[in-house]
Computed example of a mutant assay.
Amino acid sequence: MAKTAEKTTLSTTVYQKLRSDIIQGEFRPGEKLRIEGIASTYGVGSNAVREALSRLSSERLVERHEQRGFSVPTIALDDWRVLVRTRCWLETRALEEAISHRDERWEEGIVLALHRLSRYRSDFPAERAAWEDAHRNFHRALLANCGSPWLLEFCEILADHASRYISISHAFGRMPRNGQSEHEALMKAVLNGTPQEACALLVAHYTKTLQTIEELFTEERFATLATGSGPTRTAELTD
């Protein structure tokens, strides 16, 4: 029993690490994920890596090829547009439901999440990771009271995929905008405005990110990365 628990814990740890590295752009789009190489880098056995890759393929964060192993999904402008559009559909629905079921605890959670977000600056490299966590938690707080764990889970999946595109854009010097005024306006609309106003601001917020990455796809370096022929690590892109 102890060995089984240890194996499960190791597999979960590898899954979480690999998942984070893919979302953060540590592997380039289209890069082949070699089991032995990852196992060596992470200092674990190949079985744990294989299990993690299989799990990630079910989340579409890894592509599985019959008889040819695994790779990181490529990126494409059309896919990015569909992702943002779908995210807006689902999150506005979740936001409407959250507003309709509003209570004091939910409202206080949003205010607290915005306060924590205001502590950090996205354009300060030393604070970027903390800002990203706080930013994600603010958006989670907006939807938290929607009453549907299924809907929240789908929103989380889409947010992860959007984060991968955004992380890659950072490697090209496109720093995330701080957006504090956007977040404050969104909070005020959610707490004091109409659902229509709140949803319109949420869509506008995501549309600005959409437009930033649309512009990136016009750059030759980014287009090279999108085809899977660029550098293997995003760190190399900032040199």
Rank of each mutant, 00 (worst) to 15 (best):
T4C: 08
T13R: 11
Q16S: 11
Q16C: 09
Q16I: 01
Q16L: 12
S20W: 12
G30D: 09
E31N: 09
I35N: 10
L53H: 09
S58K: 10
L61A: 06
H65T: 15
E66Q: 14
E66L: 15
Q67P: 01
G69Y: 09
G69R: 05
S71E: 15
D79V: 03
R81T: 04
R81F: 03
R87E: 14
R87Y: 13
W89E: 14
T92Y: 09
R105D: 12
L117A: 14
S118Y: 04
Y120I: 02
P125E: 13
R128G: 08
A130S: 15
E132C: 07
R136V: 02
R140C: 04
A144V: 02
S148F: 09
P149V: 06
L151S: 06
L158M: 08
D160Q: 11
S163N: 13
Y165A: 01
I168C: 05
F172K: 01
R177H: 06
R177K: 04
N178G: 04
Q180T: 03
M187T: 07
L191I: 00
A198H: 04
L201Q: 11
H205S: 09
Y206R: 00
L210T: 02
Q211D: 15
Q211C: 13
E215Y: 06
L216P: 03
A223P: 03
T224S: 14
A226R: 00
T232V: 09
D239E: 13
